[in-house]
């Protein structure tokens, strides 16, 4: 049955990825392009990283050396591949988590469980990290801080996800002790508390150049958030619907209880 869940998760992720690509292409690319323009205007004479030597001519060649992939390719097939692979793989992982959570988090229909898991995943992997390390367009970071920024970002993802799993795990005993409403509130408060501590304890990496256009940054971050909202919402809704439909058609039967 896991195989059947897995491919449905990846299918839901692919559908989500295609919709997210439309969002990224329409609303994400314009601010990204303007950010590259700003970056190029600043690049003359300074800050050339190893992996990102920006030619003095900047225009049209974001990353000058080596691979020679054009902006046109980056913003079309590259973007489609990046968002599509990300979303499809996320859908597969989502299906694995769903298989683990199903029947172990109380009485929930597949659709309800799918939506709940997607909400939890969005909160833990997007919303909470977003507050501390929001997405940045080109022209914000410097090559000197990429190692640090990568480390703290993935570390925060790990902390946030672990805290979420802990809260979900404790929700049941807390409900038994405090009642259904207060139990869930307590579990949520625990996650919020850990998130708040993480926001405070993780280092702030400030790299926004003094004259970076604020409007471009705002639009970039907003579109980035929109992309993630689409991915997680579509993933949660489509996966749950696919599973329930398959279940009604008796396609999903477990080895353990084929008669359920």
């Amino acid at each position: 049955m896991i195989g059947q869940l897995l491919w449905r998760g990846m299918l839901a992720g692919l559908i989500a990825g295609l919709l997210a690509f439309a969002m990224a292409s329409t609303f994400g690319e314009p601010p990204l392009t303007r950010a590259i323009g700003f970056e190029a205007s600043q690049a003359d004479g300074h800050h050339h990283g190893e992996a990102h030597s920006h030619g003095a001519t900047g225009e049209g060649h974001h990353h000058g050396d080596g691979a020679g992939i054009s902006r046109a390719t980056q913003s079309s097939w590259g973007l489609l591949t990046g968002v599509g692979v990300y979303s499809t793989a996320l859908g597969g992982l989502f299906a694995l988590v769903f298989a683990l959570a199903n029947g172990r988090l109380g009485r929930l229909s597949p659709r309800a469980l799918s939506v709940l898991l997607a909400a939890g995943g969005f909160l833990a992997l997007v919303a909470v990290p977003w507050v501390k390390y929001p997405p940045n367009p080109p022209g914000i970071g410097t090559a000197a801080t990429i190692d640090l920024r990568t480390e703290v970002y993935f570390l925060l993802l790990a902390v946030s996800l672990s805290a979420m799993m802990l809260s979900v795990r404790l929700a049941r005993p807390l409900r038994a002790r405090l009642g259904p409403w207060n139990g869930v509130l307590a579990a949520g408060a625990l996650y919020g508390l850990i998130a708040a501590f993480a926001w405070g304890l993780f280092p702030t990496v400030a790299t926004i150049p003094a004259h970076f256009p604020a409007e471009v940054l705002w639009q970039f971050r907003l579109s980035s958030l929109g992309i993630q909202v689409i991915i997680w919402a579509v993933l949660g809704l489509v996966f749950g619907a696919l599973v329930e439909r398959a279940r009604r058609r008796r396609q999903l039967t477990g080895r353990a209880s084929a008669t359920a």
């Binding site: 990204l32 990290p129 920024r149």
Partner: peptide
């Protein structure tokens, strides 16, 4: 470079 735009827009440090 190929996945560059997606990496930025998906929120990863690039």
């Amino acid at each position: 470079e190929f996945v560059h735009d997606g990496r930025h827009l998906l929120g990863f440090p690039c």
